[in-house]
Simulated assay, not measured.
Amino acid sequence: MRLNRQFIRTQLMAQNILNRNAATKRENTSENTAAVLEKAYSRLEARSSNEGINQFNYSKTSVAGNGGTFSKVYQSTNDRTVTDTGEETVIQSKNPYESESDIRIKILDEKYSRMNAINKTKSDPLGYIKDKYQNSKSPYFRSDLSAAERQAAYDNETEWLFKGKAQNYNLQDAAFRNVTFNGEVEAENAKVYQRSQVNQQLQVLLNRNHIHIPQGTELTFTITPIDYKVQVSGTDDQALIEQIEQVLQSGDNSKELFLHIMKSQSSDSTQFSEEAYKKYQAAREMYEVTGYHLKDLEVIDGRYVTPDGRDLLDVYKEELEKNPLQKQTASYAISHYRSELGKIAEAGYDTIPDFILSINYSNGSLRDMGQSKGYGTGDTGWLETLKHQTGVNY
């Protein structure tokens, strides 16, 4: 609301100045409007320089692009503390998160919505944009920007001008001057964030049930697919094991933890087997849609058959077609799973290993096993090395 009120005051200030000069300069109203708004927006940006995304200054004389500023915005945006809402399922494998790319889009949306407002007050908006970024002889030329930054500004401002809002951005924008981004680092940061949230959620679950795991105790949680049954090991305290297993198997907590482990796997994970994963995907889909578990069904002529003699895929099709949205893609799903079920039936369900996943737990954090990358508390030194190697500086 503060920004909105400032925006309104800025507009009124600009209008008052224009009104005082209207009698003598009516023919140049649009040019004056742009000039006044441009100055007013610069003052507005200066006043908002300490407020979140508005820390980025887009005035002609100062374009902030330091890694420290972006880092603060990124950290504050994703500073979320998990609280106990009372719901049975506390653990979530997918938690709200704003990536570096999401934040960059927000910054550029804010920047270019303002620039677009100024550009549209000009009698020739496109000509004005070209003057700023392509005509070195124009008084509007942005000599303070690099050639790449001018091209980015041109691309982004014309996107807004022609489409009302940018559909695609040129990210070589001056707003990110001296800030280096890397796609691999972005993906790993997301995994670290999700782990921090799941760690908090697990602690909420333990606290709610008055379960205390002593410091230094190193546990392993092993979860089987489909039924998501949890087995806890690593301690001789059988009562503690039973407590943890019971609470993890309440609601969908064990399923969500299973999915979190799966999403946290790195490329060298010894737990991942493509054959086991495909078996899990097919068995899970059939179970969640039809209620039948492949391991409980008979195979006749290479097809899984229900106890009442029906082809499992016929049951699957019927269930999909009950949903108008799923009905549209049912044929593709049936074709895919017919192939997958055929492979499992031919090989034998028990011949293909189950997609069983495990994760360690100690000192308040889940810790990855069987892979080089760890996302637990204190286990991310490798990520700092990756940032250094790729030049990421936020």
Rank of each mutant, 00 (worst) to 15 (best):
residue 2 R to E: 10
residue 4 N to D: 04
residue 20 R to P: 00
residue 22 A to E: 07
residue 24 T to R: 11
residue 26 R to C: 06
residue 30 S to H: 13
residue 36 V to R: 02
residue 37 L to W: 08
residue 43 R to I: 00
residue 44 L to G: 03
residue 48 S to I: 01
residue 59 S to M: 02
residue 61 T to S: 15
residue 71 S to I: 02
residue 75 Q to G: 05
residue 76 S to T: 05
residue 78 N to S: 14
residue 85 T to D: 15
residue 87 E to K: 11
residue 94 K to E: 13
residue 94 K to T: 10
residue 96 P to S: 14
residue 98 E to C: 04
residue 98 E to N: 13
residue 99 S to L: 07
residue 101 S to E: 11
residue 107 I to E: 01
residue 108 L to D: 03
residue 110 E to Q: 13
residue 111 K to F: 11
residue 113 S to E: 11
residue 116 N to M: 05
residue 136 S to T: 15
residue 137 K to L: 09
residue 138 S to N: 04
residue 139 P to S: 10
residue 140 Y to T: 09
residue 145 L to K: 00
residue 148 A to W: 11
residue 150 R to F: 10
residue 151 Q to W: 05
residue 159 E to N: 14
residue 159 E to W: 09
residue 164 G to T: 13
residue 165 K to D: 01
residue 167 Q to N: 12
residue 168 N to G: 03
residue 168 N to M: 03
residue 169 Y to I: 02
residue 170 N to L: 06
residue 172 Q to D: 15
residue 172 Q to K: 13
residue 175 A to W: 01
residue 182 N to C: 08
residue 185 V to W: 06
residue 188 E to Q: 13
residue 189 N to Q: 14
residue 190 A to Q: 11
residue 191 K to Q: 09
residue 197 Q to R: 15
residue 197 Q to E: 12
residue 203 Q to E: 14
residue 207 N to V: 00
residue 208 R to T: 10
residue 212 H to W: 05
residue 214 P to H: 14
residue 216 G to D: 01
residue 220 T to C: 04
residue 220 T to S: 15
residue 221 F to R: 00
residue 225 P to E: 05
residue 226 I to A: 03
residue 227 D to K: 05
residue 230 V to Y: 02
residue 236 D to R: 10
residue 237 D to P: 02
residue 239 A to Q: 13
residue 248 L to C: 11
residue 249 Q to F: 07
residue 250 S to R: 13
residue 256 E to A: 06
residue 262 M to C: 09
residue 262 M to K: 12
residue 270 T to K: 10
residue 272 F to K: 04
residue 275 E to F: 09
residue 277 Y to D: 10
residue 278 K to E: 10
residue 278 K to N: 14
residue 278 K to I: 07
residue 281 Q to C: 06
residue 286 M to C: 14
residue 294 L to E: 08
residue 297 L to H: 07
residue 305 V to H: 06
residue 307 P to K: 07
residue 312 L to A: 03
residue 313 L to E: 02
residue 324 P to F: 07
residue 326 Q to G: 12
residue 329 T to M: 12
residue 330 A to D: 08
residue 336 H to Q: 12
residue 337 Y to H: 11
residue 342 G to T: 12
residue 343 K to M: 10
residue 347 A to V: 05
residue 350 D to V: 00
residue 353 P to L: 12
residue 354 D to K: 07
residue 355 F to R: 01
residue 371 Q to R: 07
residue 374 G to Q: 05
residue 390 T to K: 15
